[in-house]
C-alpha cells in the first residue's frame, strides 16, 4: 500500500501539487485521473522519486520514501516497476536484453536463469519470437508489452503505469489494460495508473483519485463516481464519453 499525505510541490511560482493526500491499495488498480496539466504526472514522478516534493510524505508499506537515505531509497526503487508513456526501452538493447537488464543489474542469476526469467516475462505478456529484435523494429503495442515485461522482471511490489494506452489503437489498448489488470491480481501488486482514458478506467479501475488543477478533488471506488456529486469529475467523465 502507498500512502500519500499532504504532498506539495511548486515549480517557481506555480503551485503544481496542492496538499494532496491519497491511499493506493495493494492488489488493486489504482487510477490517478484528471485533465492534462492537472498535476498527475508530477504526482507520479514524486511517488517514484524523480521529483522531490517540498512537503508531505509518500509511504511505501511503512517506509517514508522522502525520509530515506540514498541506499534505502535504492532498496525501495528495486521494488518498483514502471511502464513509461513512451516505453523508455533502451534503444541500444534488443527486446530480451531490455527485459534482462534489471536482472543483470540487481541479481546474481546465472545467464541461464536470466534467460528463463526473460522468456517467462515475455511469455506472460504474450510476446514470443521477438527476443532479438530492437525497439525500433517493433510496434507501439509490442513496445508497451516489452515495457511491462521489463517492469515485472524483478517481481515488483509496486507497478506504475504512465499513460499506458497513449498512442495505441483501441483494441491494443484493451489488451494492455487486461494485461495490467491480470498482472496486478496475479502478483498482488500495488498498481498505479496515470491516465485520462476513461475506457481503461471502466475496464480495470478500482480505486480512483481525481486530480484537478493540482488538488485532489475526489477519491473513491469506481462505482461511486456517478453518485459523487463532484461537478468537475462528472464534467470530466461526460467529456470522455462517446
Amino acid at each position: 500500500m502507498i500512502v500519500i499525505e499532504n504532498v506539495n510541490k511548486t515549480f517557481g511560482t506555480k503551485h503544481v501539487l496542492k496538499d494532496i493526500s491519497a491511499n493506493l491499495y495493494k492488489g488493486k488498480c489504482n487510477f490517478i485521473i484528471g485533465a492534462s496539466g492537472g498535476g498527475k504526472s508530477v504526482l507520479m514522478k514524486c511517488m517514484v522519486g524523480l521529483v522531490t516534493p517540498e512537503t508531505g510524505s509518500i509511504t511505501f508499506d511503512g517506509r517514508d520514501f522522502l525520509k530515506l537515505n540514498y541506499k534505502e531509497k535504492i532498496n525501495v526503487r528495486k521494488d518498483i516497476g514502471m511502464l513509461f508513456q513512451n516505453t523508455a526501452l533502451f534503444d541500444s538493447l534488443n527486446v530480451e536484453e531490455n527485459v534482462a537488464f534489471p536482472l543483470r543489474m540487481f541479481t546474481d542469476f546465472t545467464e541461464e536463469q536470466i534467460m528463463d526469467r526473460v522468456n517467462f516475462c515475455l511469455g506472460r505478456v504474450n510476446l514470443v519470437n521477438l527476443n532479438k529484435l530492437f525497439p525500433s523494429n517493433i510496434s507501439g503495442g509490442q513496445k508497451k508489452r516489452v515495457g511491462i515485461a521489463r517492469a515485472i522482471a524483478l517481481n515488483p511490489k509496486y507497478l506504475f503505469c504512465d499513460e499506458p494506452n497513449s498512442g495505441l489503437d483501441p483494441l491494443t489498448s484493451r489488451v494492455i489494460d487486461e494485461l495490467i489488470k491480470d498482472i496486478t491480481k496475479e502478483y498482488n501488486i500495488t498498481t498505479v495508473i496515470n491516465t485520462h482514458d476513461m475506457k481503461s478506467l471502466f475496464v480495470m479501475g478500482e480505486n480512483i483519485v481525481f486530480i484537478h488543477q493540482g488538488a485532489k478533488w475526489w477519491e473513491g471506488e469506481k462505482a461511486g463516481i456517478r453518485s459523487s456529486g463532484n461537478k468537475e469529475l462528472l464534467a470530466f467523465m461526460e467529456a470522455s464519453e462517446f
Partner: peptide
C-alpha cells in the same frame, strides 16, 4: 536522446 526519451528516468527509477 536517452534523457528526452525517459531512458535516463527509467534507470533512476530502477535505482
Amino acid at each position: 536522446t536517452m534523457k528526452v526519451t525517459e531512458q535516463v528516468d527509467a534507470l533512476e527509477i530502477m535505482g
